[in-house]
Design a protein around this nucleic acid. Structure first.
Lengths: 337, 337
DNA sequence: AACGTTACCGGAAACGTTTCCGACCCTTCG
DNA sequence: CGAAGGGTCGGAAACGTTTCCGGTAACGTT
């Protein structure tokens, strides 16, 4: 069944059928109705390859995910996937390693699959306009904030929580409960704007309250917010003998690893050490103890990313930047001292 | 840059270039080398739309995931995605709700995207040959075992752990440590072969050891191995006043929810109640207490699924069935009584 | 020497759509 | 009454590839 068959069956030309199917004007209501009615009943499935060929582009939106051990992305992916589908597009998913270059990966993907748009999940912090110009289609950087000014506002679109505020709030919460010696567990700072910003929030909150950040309390975990790396990192910190009453984990997955390391040392949470995370993963609501964390709404952010990309695809010239406010979710992993 | 350009540049015909690019015979070594050399240096990107159009099929493999809250699938997806990519195909991911029909969804997806193959993650237990015949391309049912004989071996291909054995071993482990009153927490039995089989393993192990399964100890959670549903289900069971010393959770996510419910009631694990799961999620290695579970190797199973599908695509007539043996991972959530 | 076979190659059709262009009819206006 | 213009439509080119088919040259066989 092709549009040629439809044309023949309806006694019209193929171009007319094409116009009807694409909601174009220049078709009389009478013909439009006739064609539409026939199409509805004949089980016609458009041939995307043919459309893509002549338009020399596809209907696919690429999603590049960096940091696959990060459960937060898994939570977002479902929303993103279903919204992309609902909008009539196809999602092309691409996982990359934490040390890979997502812009390059996205650019390759774009050309190979003839993407019309891209969503990046888990960004570095040091994009340059030159790099980004490799990408020839609209894109949204989700989970990325250009806090360090390597880009101007018009260079990109973004959806993220205010990672700086999240780090700041987390630490402020600890301080408000009497903590002064607060360790920080952050994934490779240079790899991610998220990590970097949350760390900066940590430092700022400390300074704001008259506490000088202590190099000894800052542990840089490898990887991309993965649990095992966080565990190892926390273990090393504990064995270093440095004193602290609480841990600021740069993400919930990091917190999960950290909590385990603490417990394995025979220490209790929050009895001996308090732990706070950022992300608000579902699973940490069911952890023991329940993690106190700053929630970034996965579904909301996924939805906003897709909607923003779609509006860019429709030609909206105003590249927007959405900064969601993180919300404190009080668990049982932090105590007053 | 098209193959026509390449043909012109190399002084050969387009069909020759096409043959070279597709590794076809009937090309002299000399010409082949010349074309290949040129192609390597000119940054040619094949136009998939054109290829798909003339072949009237794409290069895409569909992955239909049912039960999105199940973290196990998230762990598999990365492997599946990267292997599909590495094989030169495109992955089309499709999440469906726990009450949706994955065969129908797969069939639609197949036609719309002109898929060449499908992988199903999270299957029902009651497929019929008639239903499956809706799917016109090779497919692999991952996480599905045709234990109930509605299908014959040639009707499908599958990769899964021996879910029956997993349920059996889990319960046997509990019994070997002195447990006799073992509650079972299973997601909607009728929805999933996995759930059903693990439950059967549970019953069989009990009977084998002279314990009659007690209806009161069996709690059916809604949903698809989701944490919150499991929590609610466990909570209800605890409040029902039935006595038991341990819980057989049909999956690790179920176990996570169950453990939380138990702790929220002020009971300790494994002090008051032991918990055993199935899946071997990374996150449960870092739970408190570490979950005792039967590991199904996510990466291995993802790899096998893709490889099996690829071999089917190459025309292998032997539909295979892989049944991975689950491995007991001892944690701290079960105690001897 | 004639013929068959093999290896290699190029031309051209075909895939199903979009879109450009021209054509037709009808209305309106000078 | 003729021209202009808008509304409606169909034909055909074009997109870039694969594949069928036919052709040529070289070589071996009878």
């Amino acid at each position: 069944m092709t549009i040629k068959d439809i044309a023949k069956a309806c006694g019209v030309g193929v171009s007319t059928v094409s116009r009807v199917l694409n909601n174009r004007p220049d078709v009389s209501d009478d013909v439009r109705r006739r064609v539409l009615e026939f199409v509805d009943n004949c089980g016609y499935i458009p041939n995307n390859s043919a459309r893509d060929l002549v338009r020399s582009r596809s209907d696919a939106i690429g999603v590049v995910v960096r940091g696959t051990g990060n459960l937060f992305f898994a939570e977002m992916l479902k929303t993103i996937s279903s919204l992309i589908e609902k909008s009539g597009h196809t999602m092309v998913l691409h996982f990359i390693d934490s040390d890979a270059d997502e812009v390059k990966a996205g650019a390759i993907l774009e050309r190979e699959k003839k993407l019309i748009g891209l969503i990046f999940l888990g960004g570095r912090y040091d994009y340059t306009p030159a790099e980004l110009s490799l990408i020839g289609v609209p894109y949204v950087c989700c989970t990325y904030t250009n806090r360090f000014g390597s880009l101007s506002e018009e260079d990109y679109a973004s959806v993220s929580i205010d990672d700086y505020a999240a780090g700041y709030s987390a630490v402020e919460h600890l301080i408000s409960l009497g903590h002064r010696r607060i360790a920080a567990l952050v994934p490779s700072l240079s790899d991610s704007s998220v990590s970097e910003l949350r760390y900066c929030g940590y430092c700022a909150a400390l300074k704001e309250h008259g506490i000088e950040p202590d190099r000894e309390l800052i542990a840089e975990a490898g990887g991309c917010f993965e649990i095992p790396e966080a565990y190892d990192c926390m273990k090393t910190l504990l064995e270093s003998g440095v004193e602290f009453s609480s841990v600021f984990a740069a993400s919930d997955t990091v917190a999960i690893g950290a909590m385990k390391a603490i417990e394995d040392k025979g220490l209790s949470i929050p009895g001996d050490i308090s732990v706070i995370g950022i992300d608000g993963l579902v699973v940490t609501e069911y952890a023991n103890p329940t993690l106190t964390t700053l929630v970034q709404p996965a579904e909301e952010m996924g939805r906003q990313s897709v909607e923003m990309l779609l509006s860019l695809l429709e030609g909206a010239k105003t590249t927007r930047h959405l900064l969601v406010k993180p919300a404190l979710r009080i668990g049982a992993s932090v105590r007053k001292i």
